[in-house]
């Protein structure tokens, strides 16, 4: 209470001064350029106002629609794959593991690998998925296969794997943070009232951690939209994503208006996809509760 008043007494002059550099930078170097890009998308290469760029997307022969849909599909798959990794691991780190040393060590290792950057992280997968990579060599040694599997590298599988690898720590960190602040006694109370470990997780922990999970889901989806390195290094020719197409318009075809159009389409369709994911998730949850399907099994039912 007292701190609040010190603040009022000093007025809000300092707050304007503190906010101004970053907000002004955002306006000049973020909002205006994006607006400029949107405006550029409405012109043709000679500078005339035109909707031709958007119309060209509908031309199925260009394959751009396929690329867009593949990008969005892989983005959603990356969210799901990241959830599969992040939810159990975040819960383990935040609430289950007893030793703070182990907790710190694991977080340290994940952060260190994460900050090595997407280029190094992506390149390193080639030694795992290659014809003479770790997986093929191991399987051959174990006698499970007689010929190396060629399709591991250069395809959607490799690309999706690397994308997940590159972004899942975002989801892990946000989920971990939001689970960390949950009061242990709340989980203990749920267990005490008869919830199984799974029920306590799905009925108590997950709803409380939802804001962090949602934030993390956005943070893993967004980088997949701008993935250039992963498709190029691991995806092969058949797995182009939108980001590559945009890069090509800017650097090879030198058709900036079309490149701008593709980015606008990417942002808009990405936002719609996220909304759809949210909608489907909430509908599915509602349907589950409507039909009495429990997401967790009460312990005495077993």
């Amino acid at each position: 209470m007292s701190a609040g008043l010190v603040k009022n007494a000093r007025g809000s002059g300092w707050i304007t001064a503190a906010a101004l550099p970053w907000l002004a930078s955002l306006l000049v170097f973020f909002a205006l350029p994006l607006a400029g890009l949107a405006a550029l998308s409405l012109t043709d290469q000679s500078g005339q106002v035109s909707l031709a760029n958007y119309a060209s997307l509908a031309d199925l022969a260009s394959g751009r629609l396929d690329v867009l849909l593949r990008t969005l599909r892989i983005g959603v798959i990356v969210i799901i794959a990241s959830l599969c990794i992040a939810l159990p691991v975040a819960y383990y780190l935040a609430k289950v593991v007893q030793s703070p040393r182990i907790e710190s060590l694991i977080l340290l290792l994940v952060s260190a690998t994460f900050l090595a950057g997407p280029l190094v992280r992506t390149v390193s997968w080639r030694g795992i998925l290659g014809v003479h990579g770790l997986i093929n060599e191991s399987l051959l040694q174990l006698g499970l296969i007689s010929e190396p599997i060629l399709s591991l590298l250069y395809g959607e599988l490799a690309m999706t794997l690397a994308l997940t690898y590159n972004v899942f720590p975002f989801l892990l960190f946000t989920t971990y943070l939001s689970m960390k602040v949950i009061d242990d006694r709340i989980i203990a109370a749920a267990r005490d009232l008869g919830a199984s470990p799974a029920a306590a997780f799905f009925r108590v922990v997950l709803p409380l951690a939802a804001p962090g999970v949602v934030t993390g889901a956005v943070l893993v989806f967004v980088p997949t939209l701008s993935a250039v390195l992963e498709p190029e290094i691991l995806g092969g020719t058949s797995s182009r994503l939108m980001a590559t197409a945009i890069r090509d318009q800017f650097f090879h075809a030198h058709n900036w208006p079309l490149g701008a159009t593709l980015t606008v389409v990417l942002i808009v369709s990405g936002t719609i996809t996220l909304m759809l994911v949210a909608l489907v998730t909430s509908l599915a949850l509602r349907a589950c509760s409507h039909y009495g399907l429990s997401t967790g099994v009460p312990s005495h039912a077993k």
């Binding site: 209470m1 007292s2 701190a3 008043l5 010190v6 009022n8 007494a9």
Partner: peptide, 13 residues
């Protein structure tokens, strides 16, 4: 009571 004290100390006006 804490508000009263805060006004004497100057944390509150």
């Amino acid at each position: 009571k804490s508000t009263l004290l805060g006004m004497v100390g100057g944390q509150l006006r």
